[in-house]
Design a protein around this nucleic acid. Structure first.
Lengths: 192, 192
DNA sequence: ACCTGAACACCGTTCAAGT
DNA sequence: ACCTGAACACCGTTCAAGT
């Protein structure tokens, strides 16, 4: 006689994401997730293989969510008049805004604690599609990938330095970010 | 009647670094460290407050070691004839070489799992002094800090993308790194 | 003064037993 | 079919007792 399901993978991933936001990675325990969805810890193992898979699912969901926000950032407000260079700047700021709003989810996606926590390539690709579209218009299809990689490397490096507290020597961090992305966008545009 | 000390902070940090290299952060347990130095786990707490402090001490030692290597990279091989721009490229490659040789220690230093694991500013500064010297010659003292931050952001972002397996879409990664640092160095030089 | 066994409060995970 | 209590093998950390 089957007992009815009392939770789902979606609910578990959602609960895990919230706990990650609130308590960080050390606070994201299977027991905390189980308590949140109203079930005993062993029951979670009917839906996810282990904690690592849960982290991967949260990272994939984060990639999906971030992709949607980056899409919105490029299509919002006067899409026709924005140059590819302007869009690139908008994307970088949208990425940083996302990182500041959900730092723990962002870190899980861009600096996963171990290789086992990386989401599958499809989910990863979702989050950079808008960026690739923009760099393709800026430098052409052949250099679009390396241009996107340069921008991503700089932006994620900058944000991880922020999170690591590396900017204690002073200076306006917002201004430094705007300065940096403008320089890089201009350098890429000059080449395209 | 005092019993003789059977270990030291230095030995504990050294053992912890080796274990980190071999087994990663999850393998760096107080029990593993205790076994390595030939003592029972509770004895470690006479030398370090807790595991977080041990991580901080390992990060500080890593910063010191990296600083020495970056110094060596700039002073080696024809120091008189190297331009600041060339030195900047050498520094970036030396950083990446270090990261590839000791990925776990590098990650602990540049993408610490939590704020509590960040070493003190003095240790941090040690690792970027050679870079600041070089950017000061390249763009002048006023812009040296923001130039150094731009380079560090790009380089650490690039390397963390490597470690996260973000370069699966193909292309020569070594070439991409060389291309990127050359472009950035040239862009900074054009401004100085 | 340092070291240790024992203990405590946690973890992730498995599994037989319930419904 | 799903859920659960009990259990196991780990953790970090504390502390009283030894020398």
């Amino acid at each position: 006689m089957p007992t009815p399901a009392r939770t789902s993978v979606e609910e578990i991933v959602s609960a895990g994401s919230s706990i990650l936001d609130d308590a960080g990675l050390p606070g994201l325990t299977m027991q905390a997730v189980a308590a949140r969805v109203g079930v005993r810890p062993p029951s979670l193992y009917k839906r996810v293989r282990d904690r690592d898979e849960l982290l991967r699912l949260i990272a994939a969901a984060t990639a999906h969510e971030l992709g949607a926000r980056l899409d919105a950032a490029t299509t919002a407000a006067d899409p026709a008049s924005a140059t590819p260079e302007e869009r690139l700047v908008q994307l970088a700021h949208a990425l940083r805004t996302f990182a500041h709003a959900w730092p723990e989810r962002y870190r899980l996606l861009f600096t996963p604690p171990a290789a086992a926590h990386r989401p599958d390539p499809d989910a990863q690709a979702q989050s950079v599609r808008a960026l690739l579209d923009t760099t393709a218009r800026l430098v052409g299809p052949d250099d679009a990938l390396s241009a996107a990689r340069t921008v991503t490397a700089w932006a994620t490096g900058f944000i991880s330095m922020e999170f690591a507290g590396a900017f204690q020597l002073g200076g306006d961090v917002d201004e430094a970010f705007s300065y940096g992305i403008s320089r890089i966008a201009a350098a890429l545009a000059a080449d395209g």
